[in-house]
Structures are given as C-alpha cells and as structure tokens.
Computed example of a mutant assay.
Amino acid sequence: MLGIAVLLGSGVTAGVLFAVALSVLPALFAMETGTYVYAHKLLGRNWDPTMPVVVLTSTLLAAWLALIADDGTAQLLFAAAAVLLLGVSAVSHLCNVPINRRVKAVDNPDELPADWQDPRPLWRRWHLLRTLLAVIALALNAAAVTVI
C-alpha cells in the first residue's frame, strides 16, 4: 500500500512539473511582460500549499520505505528517490519561490519598475532542474516498487 502511495505522490509531482515545463512555460514566454506578471499571479494561486504537501509527503514515504524495505536494492532506490524529492523541494523553496514572491509583489503589471528584470529565464532553469529531479525520483520509486 505504501508503494502505491509513493508512486501516486511522486507521479503527481513529476506530472505537474512536466506539464508546466511542456505547456505553461512556453505560454508564459510568449506573453508580453505585463501579461506574464498577471498570468503568473493567477497560475500560482493554487500551487501552495498543495504541491509542497505532495512533494514532502512523497519524500517521507520514500524515506520510510527505504528504512523498512527488506530488499537492499529497493532500500537504495527508495533512498535515492527520497533525496531527489528533497532536492525538488529545496529547488522550489530556495530558488523558484523567491522569484514567485518577487513577481507577486508587482502592484501594477502595466507599470513595471525601471530596474525590473524578467525572471522567466531564471525561473525556467530552476523549474527544469526540479522537473528532472522529480522524473528521476518517479523512475527510482517505480523500480523500487517492482523489487519489493
């Protein structure tokens, strides 16, 4: 049962991040800056606290499974997946969230400050990193579940 839960959580994590990378990011890059800021604010409304809970729960499940699995290979796979999911959380919290806060702090997207720097390229790099970590974590969890 825990194996199903870790697959569900890590699958949702990888799937959401992959969908954002595949569809949302290109759409945001196609927008004028003011429109992007407005859209970014709208898109970010429901991610918190949902995604942090999903990612951290999946991390804890993978770590727990690493501790209780009888098979050494499964233990290593679950442990590696837990570390990668923790990396997803760290990149999100330390890199993407500060950028999100900066965008959300803009009062009027039509009148950006003179020193405004478009955060999209940097946000995309961090997002692609956490997407890669999440997809690898999902693959490791799936491999571990097949071993136990």
Rank of each mutant, 00 (worst) to 15 (best):
A21S: 15
K104Q: 12
A19L: 14
V24L: 15
L67Q: 13
N108A: 10
A81W: 05
A82G: 13
E111P: 02
A80H: 07
R125M: 06
K41Q: 12
V55P: 07
V91P: 00
V54S: 06
T33C: 07
A90F: 13
L132R: 00
F29Y: 05
Q117N: 08
A80D: 03
L43E: 02
T131Y: 01
H93T: 15
P109V: 07
V91D: 00
V16S: 02
A74N: 12
L76E: 10
G72S: 15
E111Y: 01
A105W: 09
H93S: 10
I99E: 03
L112K: 06
I148R: 11
D107I: 09
V16M: 06
A139M: 12
S89R: 01
K41N: 08
I148V: 14
V37P: 06
L56K: 07
S89V: 00
L138N: 07
R101G: 08
G44D: 03
L86T: 12
A63S: 11
A27P: 00
L2Y: 14
I4Y: 11
R130T: 01
N46Q: 08
V24N: 03
V12K: 11
L61T: 03
A66P: 13
L22F: 09
P49Q: 09
A82T: 05
Q117M: 06
T131W: 09
V12T: 14
D107K: 11
L133K: 05
L8K: 05
H40N: 08
L94A: 14
P98M: 06
A39T: 13
V83M: 08
A80Y: 09
L8C: 09
G3Y: 14
S23E: 04
G11Y: 11
T73Y: 14
L43T: 04
G34F: 03
L22Y: 06
A82E: 11
A139V: 13
V103W: 07
L112R: 06
Q117Y: 03
P98T: 04
G9Q: 02
R125L: 07
V97H: 07
N96L: 01
V53K: 12
